[in-house]
Design a protein around this nucleic acid. Sequence first.
DNA 1: CTGAAAGCGCTTACAG
DNA 2: CTGAAAGCGCTTACAG
Lengths: 336, 336
Amino acid sequence: MRKRRRVMLADVAAEAGVSATTASYILNGRADEMRIAPATVTKVQAAVADLGYRPNRSARSLRTRRTATVGLVSDQIAGEQYGSSMLTGASLAARELDHLVVMGESGGDPELERLLIEEMLERDVDGVVYATRTARTVHLPEGLRGVRSVLLNCEDPDERLPSVVPDDEGGGRAAVATLLAAGARDVWVVGEDPVPEATAGPRRMAGIRAELATHDLDVAGLVRCDWSVTEGFEATSRWLADGGRADGLVCMNDRLAMGVYQALAEHGLRVPDDVSVVSFDGSALAGWLRPVLTSVELPFTELGALAVRRLLDPDDHVGTDSVPMRVRPGGSVRPV
Amino acid sequence: MRKRRRVMLADVAAEAGVSATTASYILNGRADEMRIAPATVTKVQAAVADLGYRPNRSARSLRTRRTATVGLVSDQIAGEQYGSSMLTGASLAARELDHLVVMGESGGDPELERLLIEEMLERDVDGVVYATRTARTVHLPEGLRGVRSVLLNCEDPDERLPSVVPDDEGGGRAAVATLLAAGARDVWVVGEDPVPEATAGPRRMAGIRAELATHDLDVAGLVRCDWSVTEGFEATSRWLADGGRADGLVCMNDRLAMGVYQALAEHGLRVPDDVSVVSFDGSALAGWLRPVLTSVELPFTELGALAVRRLLDPDDHVGTDSVPMRVRPGGSVRPV
DNA sequence: CTGAAAGCGCTTACAG
DNA sequence: CTGAAAGCGCTTACAG
């Protein structure tokens, strides 16, 4: 790949007038442990800088069985759906720990997933983050048995594994707290998760109920629909046509909320004057709507970063980390 | 990482009753070239399957200097902005060629970019894809000099390098052709690219003009604004307030078009009855708007895949590949 | 057609 | 405190 001959550890050692052993210890930060003379350390460091020495990782890995590399397999977290920020977070956290991310997407194909995991293990990644686009329960893939791994945005109820997920229940509480603070008392929820493995919906709902209960309230009603713009529009339109009314609406995601906005507008209801709306995701879309949608943010960058940090933390414990979801204020909640 | 002792080539050779040399040749598909007896091949393959042998890539890489790994450095192509599909495409294409993608995002920080490239080269990636979030001209980073690399979504005018970009000029022609076919004759363009390095805007504009010229037309006017919802809304509102009218609008991207929709609605103009609108990106947002926005799609998955294929194609030539942009029809262009 | 042996560039007991 | 030497698991001239 490079023009000039690559310089090796032996060259550095020669230049510094020491053995490869000594040079190696210094390069690996074991100078103190080995009580190497400070002058020797300096000489070696100078030689490294001088020759532009870069260690050959394959050679090192062959000995140490570590590659300073982490695998990240997912169904599909890139693509336009929010969630790709998990990659950004993972990449940054890996870099901070002197690692690089090897990624692969299976598109949900189990055979491809198996292949990707196998290829990663052949390359001796130091661990694997197993991520899903939507928050859900999963079964750890067979190929990851006995492999150091962290689940990202998912959990395996059958295994004791480290797992990193958003705190959807806390998010639900935060969403309702925002509405209650604005004086809303008649709170409806729009959206119902149809997939049994999905964890976001039920947990948000639990948080919503818990927070309402602190005011001796409960959910006033549920507008059932899946989490898409069209369904949000249609279900809400039907509800309004049937005389449905509320002073606070909690939408299960931002896309759905966009449909809700459209339905409210068609029925002559204004956000936030006639009804306050909060949502989940904190996606870019929330910022594009008018008024800007108040939304409880999914902390994807943080989730990705935390998963990698836990993967590389030798003292890490088994268990689930729930990362807080914060309200990103917009203009869709009526000011008190 | 794995519980049981890892099986090595020597085990396979022993089990098959041949030397490691012979087993290695067979594993590397050189059985024919070496004229190895079919029976021997069969025995070795059986042993491989039997023992579940997986080669140690680090050992192989140390000898061959190839890792079956490609680097993908970018400013930031994950995150919610469209463009993260380049990662999906790259990952899939790499897999098809028995490679894996090592990714890193610099967030635009040159020092971090340098580090990422260095780390990738230390790990002997077989080549590097250098990608940008927005289509633009770049200077090849110093660290990639002499390294096999392909530019993705960008071009270096000073270097003769392989490069993969969307065909924005063809996209511009396609956008206008759609409007002309619907009978539009008074075509305005909304959006103006403020960054001098950006290539999408000027190329689309060239295509727009070229296609209009086939009907002896030119752009009727330009509504200047950057490519955001808010600016699209405000600039279009001002234009309409000043009496601006058109029968066809070309928006430089989907977000901006969302603002245009809002402005048109506030002025009582209906899409597509009063004005036809086409846009660029083909993002999910286009599908969420009502009516669905007709948009010329940025082929991100294909771009990512093609970049990796070119990187790994030993016969690849230097030069730019322009990937076609196709119109994704919605309901924003008046049917004839 | 097949095998013994060297060597890829490191790390790490071990000896001094 | 420092160095000579073995060995990580492959590939590949080379010899037969």
